[in-house]
Simulated scan of single mutants.
Amino acid sequence: MRVLVVAVSAPTQMTGVHRHAINLAKCLLMRHDDVDLVVAPWQLKSIEGSGISTFPRLSLYVAEMTPGRTARNLWHCTALPRLVRESGADIVHLTCPVPFFKSLICRPVVVTLHDLYPMEIRENFGRFKSVFNRAILRIYLQGADAITTVSDRTLALLQTYIPKASDKAIRIYNCLEAFPPATGRSPLPEWRGYPFLLCVAQHRRNKNVTLLLRAFHQLVQRGSLAEGTRLVVIGVPGPETEAIERTVRDLELAARVVFLSGVSDAELHWCYRNAKMLVAPSQTEGFGFPVAEALQAGCRFVCSDIPAFREIDARSGHYFSLDGDAGSNLVDAILEAASSPAPPPTPLDRFSLERIGQQYSGLYSTLHLQHFTVPRASAQEKPYENKL
């Protein structure tokens, strides 16, 4: 089967959505499907660093467009249908919310739903962008033949906010591949062996980076951390960057906080293996790659007590409540984790490329068969349900 995986998005560096698209393509290639992976010109560098180009059954398409939301949306509405026809794809899989005209695409369309942020936490985008993103999300879901949510939590939110769309939704987790060997060189500038806490998060409101900064400041002021301990934040700048930088200035933490972005998988693995702990204080998440990656790497982790994190692992982490005094709760959880032994690396078979690839192949095969044998399935029918 030939699957057209469309991964065009705005960031130039690796994000959770980008990682999903690459891992999706890898798990299909491992099952000997043919994959056409579509990316924007500014995504080529991160693609080259992912190792996916070594697969012989992969065809890489670079969508010709200029940066910017308007150009990306126009490409999906006009150029994508032509590419579907020319590629001979059996299935089209869109990996992030974009507008498209289903009537112009002559093949089944599967879309990935990572989260319901436009509905759930509108502060992530700002007032105008939030309205626009909600409209795009509805178009994206309405045109799909099937929706795959990356967690049960995301599926539950879909049932709450857009119940009609949930009739054609099924949960298929994000897949995780084993980390490459950790690089021997630190990605941290001028690192001389100082201990550090790690946070892997885009600069968005739901990630709660400012809460972590305030908690870290309390720990520094109280002398509760080892001398010279730093906080390392790895993530793409975004709408919350200004507030994060202002908090660092106000708390006079510039010498203790390191911001990085665009690190390789090997460098990220080095950070997990050498950090005292991962801290993930999010208000809400669709999946939570950092928590899963910390488990894989054998890294202690402290995280907010939210459903998406509990779904990944309900026992190994040090959870703190966002209710009441969230900052004090976070400080207590960090101190508790610091005094506990590091866990061994934990394999996560239910997120493996092999298992997730099998589930996607089952979904694609059923949709493909339905497309060519049934004129139009009832909106109430979910013919692929319980077959994965």
Rank of each mutant, 00 (worst) to 15 (best):
E267V: 07
L278T: 06
G228F: 12
Q218Y: 11
L28I: 13
R85I: 08
H217I: 11
K102S: 05
D313K: 07
S282Y: 00
I91Q: 02
E385W: 10
D332C: 09
S365Y: 01
R355H: 14
R205W: 02
C303S: 15
D250L: 15
A178E: 15
R273E: 15
N23T: 13
F132V: 00
E64T: 13
P118M: 01
Q202A: 10
Q142E: 07
D167G: 09
F320G: 01
K26G: 08
V98Q: 05
C303H: 07
V6T: 08
V302W: 02
V258G: 13
E285R: 06
G324R: 12
L188G: 04
V131M: 02
R31S: 15
P81F: 07
L213V: 14
L253Y: 14
R249H: 14
A182I: 12
E285I: 08
G286L: 07
T95G: 10
D250C: 13
M14S: 09
K168T: 04
I136Y: 00
F309Q: 02
L83K: 07
K276D: 14
G88C: 12
R300F: 11
A10S: 05
L80G: 03
Q43V: 04
M277G: 11
D305I: 00
W75F: 06
L353F: 08
T284I: 02
